[in-house]
Design a binder for these strands. Structure first.
Lengths: 168, 168
DNA sequence: ATAAACTTTCAAAAAGTTTTGAAAGTTCAA
DNA sequence: TTGAACTTTCAAAACTTTTTGAAAGTTTAT
């Protein structure tokens, strides 16, 4: 396989993966592009390489910065902004987990806590079943939340090393 | 909060969550509905409660069965099919992880292995950077794959218990 | 103050995804 | 067999998300 072909395949694959991870297709592609770029790229460079519009490029680069996956790099004497991706994949993974925990898990925990406050006799089957299910979900979600909080802070080798050893 | 209101809120919340997890909105709502139902429900029941069409109900119930989240239940003397959701949330979680591992992680691992086969001098910066990045991703993805394989087989208390203790 | 070099915004268009519902298919009791 | 009771399929419609591109905004050198 030629380099150009491999690069393209990687952009496509990373893009597809992204849409399964709450990161939009283009966002993931821009990230992929920056990941394999040996040097910082300007918005213009990104637009050209991925054949996307100025607005689209701008929007998604901004989102990547928001997620903490890309950083601006300014050069003295240049007005243009350049961008670099975080290249430590373990850090990227943690960033994504962190962001999703904030956006999804935390709101859900609040709602579940609310739902348990349902009033009425815990005697009829419907109510009983409902409370039981919500409670189970709430407990698991709580544990997951704590585990993720720790994972977010953890060092790669330490984490994967211990978990995998543990798992024999 | 009244039971009916709480149920509705739960259906909406679970539906929204689903779309972040590779399970379509309606699919997740049907799952939620079955989760809190004290008894098995027929396709007709689901259609009525969720106000969705026959085709939609059928398609998504089938998908849920595919994912292993819902099971058919036949009653002798009745031609209609009834459906029950898996109510053990930890099992549900494992099922989802298992399915996504198969659908996303495994194909990606194959592609990454391929991408490393790139030919050409590892001397120029572009090629070097590319191989380096792909290799890092491949290694992390491999570790993740192994960890997930173990998690899928693990028992809830054992898993969360040990990981959380470990994480202190 | 001006203009060149950029970045940001946003409404409209395109693309992608999900849902519908009518028609076709299947199963089973009689 | 037949037909009633269901389930499945699929093309078209509805809805959602993403992308575009032109216009507006910002910054900096002169």
């Amino acid at each position: 396989m030629k380099l150009a072909e491999a690069k393209d395949k990687f952009l496509q694959t990373w893009g597809a993966l992204g849409s399964n991870w709450g990161v939009s297709r283009t966002m993931a592609q821009i990230h992929a592009l920056l990941l394999i770029a040996p040097d910082p790229m300007s918005a213009e460079d990104v637009m050209e390489q991925l054949q996307i519009s100025r607005g689209n490029a701008n929007l998604n680069i901004r989102a990547l910065i928001d997620w903490g996956l890309v950083q601006k790099e300014l050069r003295s004497g240049e007005r243009k902004e350049f961008f670099v991706a975080e290249k430590d994949i373990w850090k990227v993974f943690r960033m994504v987990v962190k962001e999703r925990r904030k956006r999804e898990l935390e709101p859900m925990l609040r709602i579940l806590a609310d739902l348990k406050e349902i009033d009425g006799s815990k005697t009829d089957r419907e109510t009983k079943e409902f409370i039981e299910v919500i409670d189970n979900i709430h407990r698991l979600a709580g544990k997951a939340d704590k585990s993720l909080a720790t994972l977010i802070k953890a060092d790669e080798n330490w984490f994967l090393g211990s978990v995998m050893k543990l798992m024999r």
